[in-house]
Amino acid sequence: MDILVCIKQVPDTKDIKLDPETNTLKREGVESIVNPFDMYAVETALMLKDEWGGTVRAVTMGPPQAEQALREVVSYGVDEVALFSDRAFAGADTWATAYTLAKGIRKLGDFDLIICGKQAVDGDTAQVGPGLAQQLDLPFITFVRRIVKIELDSRTMVVERLMDDGYDVVETSLPALLTVVKEINELRVPSLKGKMKAKKIDIPIYSAADLEVDPDSVGLTGSYTQVIEVFAPKPRGNRIILEGETEEQVEKLLNGLTKDKVLSVKID
């Protein structure tokens, strides 16, 4: 099976905060990581490769430093990588991102399966996967939590996709695109040989011209949505600790909750 994984380099969101004074992102000390959900996509691809053979390729769209993210997945066992990078791609929304990825992936050739993480933790949109599938005219299944079976002869696979109230068992024809949730597997560790390879591997960079994109469809120009304002969320900032012995605390709590109308208990 030839599998392609789409990854994204993101800032480690737990460190990201907006400075309420200046309304700017505090960036100092914020590390770049591979989007955690994408690592599950990589693991899924590697497990399928272990079982079925073939190759695993990873691509990303991003600034030149995004090659670090690609090197990281190589250390886990990804065979080949490619970086789609051009100033013209900057400011892309999910539509323009999916368009650019689709152009790049078409350049790289055919794949049996494309796997993405369910969403990126910086944007949290979960839109690029389905959008990419549509751009490539592929069937897709989102939020996959388990691969039930693959039949290469009939070119079909069956998966479980997580729903809000349980899960659906869905069959798709191949090639297809999946987005995966964390539940699907447990990450392996990188290998020393992989790390050595990652250090040396030559990462091909594809520019807008290489991908033959329509200049009006990439980056900010190609984006339908525009961010007009960013601001810090209202802090909750109450931090009220109830005083007293356990009994007293519980009384205060239940009285408070009743007053807040979130609990219908009559406390005398």
């Binding site: 990450l187 560790v189 990188p190 290998s191 020393l192 790390k195 050595m196 250090k199």
Partner: peptide, 17 residues
């Protein structure tokens, strides 16, 4: 660099697994 790699990797496996 190789020795640092070994160190980092062992630390990662120890912490994650």
């Amino acid at each position: 660099e190789e020795q640092k790699m070994i160190q980092d990797l062992a630390r990662q496996v120890a912490e994650e697994k």
